[in-house]
């Protein structure tokens, strides 16, 4: 008979073994980079195609509603979207409900602007080629306000520049003036944007969310309340593939594959063990 002490030790050992295996599954693929072929998901393709079909000077309202805790998934999406916009000459107008991510959003804008300069020779200027409006409190109230009066919600942008007369905001002051609204969300803001914003204004809506929230978006996608969405790092990888600018999303896919397979094998192995025990009995105990 096993004593509780032996059981506890076995449990601790199994737990730590799983940790080590998962760590290795994520670390080792970093050193290998075989060509990975994968077809981007339909829900990501529709977001890409929507932006790709826009004309230079069209404006996209982007809500970056995340913070460092979901940076690994949503930052690559932000980068891919910004690069795509800068490449096409589309103007992203960025707002947020999450103040804790502001430093990341500023960094994303700067990095994407530098990339646009190095890749396509475009000089991207804040206030002209993009607008980082920043944070305002209010959650649903911010959406209600933007739905009607964006410049009333943001009299100045993140860099304290007045929004009235800003070139990037020429011709837009309400949600319906935008060609597209995209919410990159770590929480429930996608549903808020749909309920209080795009369902009222009729603006096409897309989203990028953490993988955890992605399954919740299917009803909105299938009902036509959203044109598409990106879910987790895979969503970012799909967008990077479509854009043909590989970055953290695509680079992470090998580790993602390896870790998923390890977890599947662990789970299936444990189930085979359980069924074997049921069939042949546990003689040792």
């Amino acid at each position: 008979m096993r004593t509780p002490e032996i059981n506890r030790k076995r449990f601790e050992l199994a737990r730590r073994c799983v940790y080590v295996v998962i760590a290795l599954a994520v670390i080792i693929p970093y050193f290998f980079n075989p060509k990975q072929e994968f077809k981007p998901m339909a829900e990501v393709v529709s977001v890409y195609e929507k932006i790709d079909a826009m004309k230079p000077g069209d404006q996209v309202l982007m809500a970056f509603d995340y913070d460092p805790s979901s940076e690994a998934e949503l930052y690559p999406m932000s980068m891919a979207l910004l690069r795509h916009c800068f490449k096409k000459g589309v103007i992203p107008v960025i707002v947020t409900h999450w103040f804790a991510g502001l430093g990341l959003f500023e960094k994303a804008c700067n990095e994407a602007a530098e990339d646009a300069n190095s890749m396509w020779g475009k000089k991207i200027v804040s206030g002209r080629d993009y607008a980082l409006l920043g944070f305002r409190p209010g959650w649903t109230d911010l959406i209600v306000k933007i739905e009607r009066d964006l410049k009333g919600a943001y009299e100045t942008d993140y860099f304290k520049q007045p929004t009235r007369g800003m070139k990037a905001l020429e011709g837009v002051n309400s949600l319906e003036d935008f060609e597209l609204m995209i919410d990159l969300a770590a929480g429930a803001t996608v549903e808020f944007w749909i309920a209080y914003g795009t369902d009222k204004s009729g603006t096409p809506m897309a989203a990028g969310t953490t993988a955890v929230s992605a399954p919740d978006l299917y009803p909105f996608y299938k009902s036509g309340q959203m044109i598409g969405f990106m879910g987790g790092l895979r969503g970012a990888a799909d967008y990077e593939k479509l854009l043909k600018i590989p970055d953290r999303g695509e680079r992470g896919m090998l580790a993602q594959s390896a870790a998923h397979i390890i977890i599947i094998l662990l789970v299936l192995g444990a189930n085979v063990h359980m069924f074997a025990k049921r069939l042949f009995g546990n003689k040792r105990d």
């Binding site: 449990f11 199994a14 737990r15 799983v18 940790y19 998962i22 760590a23 994520v26 913070d67 460092p68 805790s69 979901s70 940076e71 690994a72 804790a100 430093g103 990341l104 870790a259 390890i262 977890i263 662990l266 789970v267 444990a270 189930n271 359980m274």
Partner: peptide
């Protein structure tokens, strides 16, 4: 803030994997 915030939630990857291994059974 960024590294701590990003790391604290990534720890859950280990817990999720370990919990799946120990409790996920087709009973």
């Amino acid at each position: 803030q960024v590294p701590c915030g990003a790391t604290i939630f990534s720890i859950l990857a280990f817990f999720v994997a370990s919990a799946a291994f120990r409790t996920f059974r087709a009973k």
